[in-house]
């Protein structure tokens, strides 16, 4: 045994272990704020715009240009996708092995699944009334987001991520049943809010 500098108490040694583990977790895991907040705020802002322009029963609360909610959504989603793409690739750049592969496969699953639904909804959306088309797109994408969060929780053994996915799925169903307009409001406040909360909680755990 090497004396002198290694003369620390068991309590100090356990504290040292926890400190180094926490340091490495911070160094190789994505920042939860960068993973959740861009999407949380994107949902909050764009679905609020949808609610204000295309309210329940076709009501217009604020007379925004017709194109504004959709354009805002596209722009915010592209920005959020870029931010989470870069932040989420951190573990893959810093480690290698099955864990890095899981991350890559998970990222591809998001892109491919969203592309599949987009093609399907574009094809059948034209045959539905405008309000129903909006509900189809929003409800489908939110359902997919909830499902992928729950699947991600199975990969990373992350209970908070499962809770977020289950929450997103439940409020989505509630919104779909409530109908167009209400769905936008519910997803904006409870869905976007849920992701902002998840980012804050995850960040607090990592600090």
């Amino acid at each position: 045994m090497e004396p002198s500098e290694d003369d620390i108490s068991p309590a100090e040694a356990l504290a040292l272990i926890e400190r180094e583990r926490a340091n490495l977790v911070r160094d190789i895991r994505p920042d939860p704020r960068l993973m959740y907040w861009p999407w949380g705020f994107a949902w909050l802002i764009c679905f609020s715009l949808f609610f204000l322009r295309y309210g329940p029963g076709g009501r217009i609360y604020v007379d925004l240009p017709e194109w504004l909610p959709l354009v805002a959504m596209l722009v915010l989603f592209v920005v959020a996708g870029l931010v989470t793409g870069v932040a989420g690739s951190k573990p893959m750049r810093r480690t290698s092995g099955p864990g890095a592969w899981s991350g890559r496969a998970y990222a591809l699953s998001w892109s491919l699944a969203f592309a599949s639904l987009s093609v399907l909804f574009s094809r059948i959306g034209g045959h539905l009334p405008e309000q129903q088309t909006g509900l189809l797109w929003a409800g489908g994408m939110v359902a997919l987001t909830g499902a992928l969060h729950m699947a991600g929780s199975a990969i990373w053994q992350d209970r908070e991520l499962f809770a977020l996915g289950a929450w997103t799925s439940v409020i989505n169903v509630a919104g779909i049943i409530a109908g167009p307009g209400w769905h936008s409001l519910i997803v904006a406040i409870l869905g976007g809010g849920g992701m902002i909360l998840a980012g804050a909680l995850g960040w607090r755990q990592l600090r």
């Binding site: 583990r21 190789i28 092995g97």
Partner: peptide, 11 residues
């Protein structure tokens, strides 16, 4: 301690 954070087989 730091390495123990990684899953088995991850480098």
């Amino acid at each position: 301690s730091a390495l123990s954070v990684l899953n088995e087989h991850d480098k």
